[in-house]
Amino acid sequence: MGKKLMSNLEGYRSLWPRRILVIFSSLVLFFLTAPLVILIIQSFTNESYLSFPPPTYGTRWYTEVIYSEDWQNATFLSLTIAIIVTPLSLVLGTLVAFGLERGPKKGKQTIQAIMISPMVLPHIVLGLGLFKIALQFNISDSLWAFVPAHLTITIPFVIVTVGASLQTFNISLEEAARSLGASKFWAVWYITLPIISPGLIAGAIFSFIISFDEFIITFFLATFQRTLPLEMFSTLMYQVKPSIAAVSALTLAITAILTVVLMFRGQVVGGGKIIK
């Protein structure tokens, strides 16, 4: 009996199914990451056309992009929107997450579903509706339209990430702080927020990236203004030039650097070690 059990367990852990799994998964992961690597390599071409591998390497397209006024303006607009949207989205979403977690259990699910519903609404539909409203208020093609529109799609992500952190947060930590003389606000400030900082950071990263990369809603709302994705799109529709690869690599770098910085800052804020 014991021997049979062993041999079956061995069979369960036998190498072949696992090997196939590893090989297949590696291919999938390659499929996920390779295009971006190829894109970055191609962006360093010195030719006037794209090819892989590039015959000669250089940074001429980066130079061109960086000194191009169109790209500068687009990058500036995208960054401006994302930098306004991220903190606002973090504050508003965190308030909602707290309200849901600390509010009555009854009705929580329904209200939460409503608060995160913009997440499952196709952006084309939202963009269409927002365009109509923006036209009515005569604010289309301005930050007054872009920022609230972006907030609508970023806040649900903050609610989800911060909500998940709050759920695992042990409320007695906050109560301990209260009994030690901290008011509700300071208890949250000194205890809760630092401990749920992974959720806050994730929410901030999501907000920034979603806003920075948003295309279709801004596409509807903008007439003359161009964010980076809009500029890339119109360039792409016109011609596939190496400059588009260089811009893509640059935006990739911006989001990657920002993510790393936020994660690192989060570590510092969180005081390092967080026990489960």
């Binding site: 971006l36 295309f215 994705p229």
Partner: peptide, 25 residues
Amino acid sequence: VVSPLLTSIIVRNVAWVLILGRSGM
């Protein structure tokens, strides 16, 4: 798995254009 999420859809599409296009990789 999540690394593509750090790049915009448009960047990822550009990457595919460069790979699959008529004169792509």
